[in-house]
């Protein structure tokens, strides 16, 4: 390799020729690109001034940028010395004596200067460890409350009246058979964990699980709307098949059979809310949910 420095190229060196076989044409192309770019940018300015619609603004800006860039790149590629040029690649690893000296400077010097105070080193280790641990406390603990029992509860209590998202109470004759509506416990309208689907089905079709005989008065069934898979709202009801579909990952739940999953990745039925109808005809919950709603978690 020659030494880098003051190399003057030989004018006859074919590496200094432009890459383009026809540099004049290439220069014309570059010039045309630049002109198009300039015009587009000017047009952008005018369009912005005149409050043109967004596609015009974006289109002119895009065209200006692209045309300038195209010219720039073509200049660099076709009109500059084509090479090939090279540079030497030297080993990054230093010669052994230098490396040994570097290692010694860090390791040996440290071992002597620091290692002779083993008690202080241990204290420093303890301090570093404890700092690392306690500094995590505010970083984590202050971010949110502890879960405690909150994953096991919802806003549904014994006797909660079923209301719509806007707070209108549901009466026993509000829904036709085949009707479906999202309900909340009164006072918790719109709440994420309390969202519940109220479905009215033909009374005879229901497969009643033992212990749930009184949960579905007048064909009304209420299930948590939170998918037991990943927590999406189970928003699609297919009336013909009496199935609930989660649009996120396609879990299917059989409404007539305690919302058992019949297809897809959901592992558990949607929890069922026991209902009753009060003397005034309003639908109320007999109690809250008996199992945690939503996806699985460790403490469940």
């Amino acid at each position: 390799m020659k030494e880098t420095g003051q190399l003057v190229a030989d004018p006859d060196d074919p590496r200094l020729e432009p890459y383009a076989r026809n540099p004049e044409a290439a220069e014309r192309v570059v010039a045309a690109s630049f002109i198009v770019g300039i015009l587009c940018l000017a047009a952008f300015g005018a369009a912005y001034w005149q409050a043109a619609s967004e596609p015009y603004l974006g289109g002119f800006m895009a065209g200006g940028m692209f045309a300038l860039g195209f010219g720039f790149t073509a200049w660099g590629k076709y009109l500059m010395p084509r090479g090939p040029f090279e540079e030497a690649r030297h080993s990054l690893a230093r010669p052994e004596p230098e490396r040994a000296a570097f290692q010694a400077a860090i390791v040996d010097r440290g071992a002597v200067a620091i290692g002779r105070r083993p008690f202080l080193v241990k204290l420093l280790g303890v301090a570093g460890g404890i700092a690392g641990v306690v500094m995590m406390f505010p970083l984590l603990r202050s971010l949110g409350p502890l879960p405690k029992h909150s994953m096991f509860t919802t806003g549904w209590k014994r006797g909660s009246r079923l209301v719509t998202a806007r707070g209108r109470p549901i009466k026993a004759d509000d829904l036709e058979v085949g009707g479906i509506i999202t309900v909340f416990p009164e006072g918790h309208e719109g709440s994420a964990q309390d969202q519940t689907l109220l479905i009215r089905v033909a009374d005879s079709a229901i497969t009643t699980r033992p212990g749930r005989e009184t949960w579905g008065p007048a064909g009304y069934l209420a299930y948590s709307k939170i998918c037991t898979h990943a927590g999406c709202p189970v928003g699609l009801y297919e009336e013909e098949t009496e199935q609930l579909l989660c649009p996120c990952h396609q879990s299917l739940f059989n409404v007539l059979d305690a919302a058992t999953p019949v297809f897809g990745p959901a592992p558990r039925p949607l929890p069922q809310l026991p209902l009753m109808i009060d003397r005034d005809g309003y639908i109320r919950s007999q109690s809250g949910y008996l199992v945690p709603v939503g996806p699985g978690f460790w403490e469940r």
Binding site: E54, P55, L57, G58, G59, M61, A62, G63, G64, M65, F66, A67, L68, G69, F70, G71, F72, T73, A74, W75, G76, K77, M80, P81, G83
Partner: peptide, 22 residues
């Protein structure tokens, strides 16, 4: 050479992304 090519390429990438956005 490379500075011209790559700066031009930056502008072209910007142009394409703006066109997508527009």
């Amino acid at each position: 050479n490379f500075m011209f090519k790559t700066m031009g390429f930056q502008l072209m990438v910007t142009g394409v992304l703006l066109a997508l956005g527009a």
